[in-house]
Design a protein around this nucleic acid. Structure first.
Lengths: 248, 248
DNA sequence: ATATTAGTTGCAAAAAGCCGCATAAACCCG
DNA sequence: CGGGTTTATGCGGCTTTTTGCAACTAATAT
């Protein structure tokens, strides 16, 4: 392995995850810690990354958005890791927005080969870091609150899509009322996304369970997978064991 | 074995694998290390590959991660400030992507009331911070390099838009050749953007002046405003005083 | 506060590279 | 054709780069 190649790989990791651990790189590149440290030192000298105890950070991750403030990040990472196995090479995937989905994207395998449709610009930017992933951003009116595109134009385009899997973050989930929301437009959007997709996965941190909002998107039965940070056997999930819904 | 033959073989290996090791080439070509080194040196002098300790890398593969810390930021802020007066309440504006445009967006007046169409997710996210601005993100294939949407779908949507002003960042500008570019798709895109808009402003840091790339987007005459960080009276801009083009 | 983990510095061995020189083949030209 | 010139290649010695190890220090965690 040439030194420059290692440097490139390190930079790729950094751009992908905004951070690298020395120990991870030792495994990944199969060289001694000293070599990794020297690599990081050199890249740092070239102002390409920010070296810290234990690894290094991206110099410019403020460009997209600051993820140190992501709420319940640990839980979201657990959810992301559980979701990965659902995603396989060759699939066509439709995603919504939100920090949970972004965490998921950051955990995707490096060489995933898939097509992603998304209504979230930030998700698109994250996805673009994967060389073999095709990203299609669905355009339309841009919502200032939820940072996704919405409105008739988006719905129309969604109608033309036939995805294998739809990944949704959640505002609220309830055993009886299913997936619910507060905003009429977003509600329409989610309905359309679900029907444009063969299967669907709802990513939901546990504190959003057992909440029900004004507008119903769909019943639990119409969701394929529910992914939380809890074990499927957890008592909090007891009421969610319904037909057709697989808990992860 | 002729030298030229060796060079060809080396280049084929490079294009195939993106890398070659000196030691591999010694075996493959059955010559001394010194000869291989001289070969690589010569090919490197001709800018055909990137020489490193231990071998060489493909020039295209060798990713240029550099200046993620926005390059020539000062100049870009000056340009942004000069551009602001062109933007008035009620206008419909079409923008491209790039760091110059993002700087511009950051300098917009807080209470601007306008409609923006953009092909850049990052610009959309920035624009969303202005409460009275309506943002429409034009969707389509997402380009990993330039971080904008492109392709037929984008062109089609642009065709339906009638904007007052089109704001473009620049890859290269030349007094004779006008606005030029290297990528065919991006080229088409810019052409379409210009014709979907009544007026157009090109934002261009001075070091990109007098450079001409392979593909022509449009002549200087078809641009309404050229905005650089220089004074309009600067000698470097002498050749840009043409009919219909206003320097700022 | 102490154990653990990460980092630093200096050193040595191996690998790669560089420089000058010698040789031989190819070329040039009257 | 023949002498001078250029070009291509390999060799030997010397330098630089890269890497891992060991001893020691600094930072972090329990």
């Amino acid at each position: 392995m040439l030194k420059k190649e290692r440097h490139d790989i390190v930079m790729r990791q950094i751009n992908l995850h905004n951070r690298v651990l020395t120990s991870d790189l030792v495994q990944l590149l199969d060289v001694s810690e000293d070599t990794i440290r020297r690599d990081l030192q050199e890249l740092s000298d070239q102002n390409l990354l920010y070296k810290v105890h234990g690894g290094a950070l991206s110099k410019s991750y403020h460009s997209t958005f600051d993820d140190s403030t992501v709420y319940a990040k640990e839980a979201k990472i657990i959810i992301a890791k559980k979701t990965i196995p659902l995603i396989k090479d060759g699939m066509v995937i439709l995603t919504g927005g939100g920090t949970t989905i972004i965490e998921l994207v950051k955990q995707l395998p490096e060489n995933l080969q898939a097509t992603f449709f998304t209504i979230s610009p930030l998700v698109a930017v994250e996805l673009a870091k994967y060389p073999k992933v095709e990203v299609i951003l669905i355009g339309g009116l841009f919502s200032k609150n939820s940072q996704i595109t919405y409105g008739g134009h988006v719905i129309n385009q969604l109608a033309e899509i036939n995805a294998d899997l739809c990944l949704l973050g959640t505002s609220a989930l309830h055993p009886k009322d299913g997936l619910t929301d507060t905003d009429w437009e977003i509600n329409q959007l989610k309905k359309r996304m679900l029907s444009s997709s063969r299967k669907s996965a709802v990513l939901c941190i546990s504190e959003k369970l057992n909440i029900s909002l004004r507008l119903k998107v769909t019943a639990l039965e119409n969701i394929s997978y529910l992914i939380t940070e809890l074990s499927p056997a957890d008592v909090k999930l007891e009421e969610y064991h319904v037909n057709g819904l697989k808990l992860l």
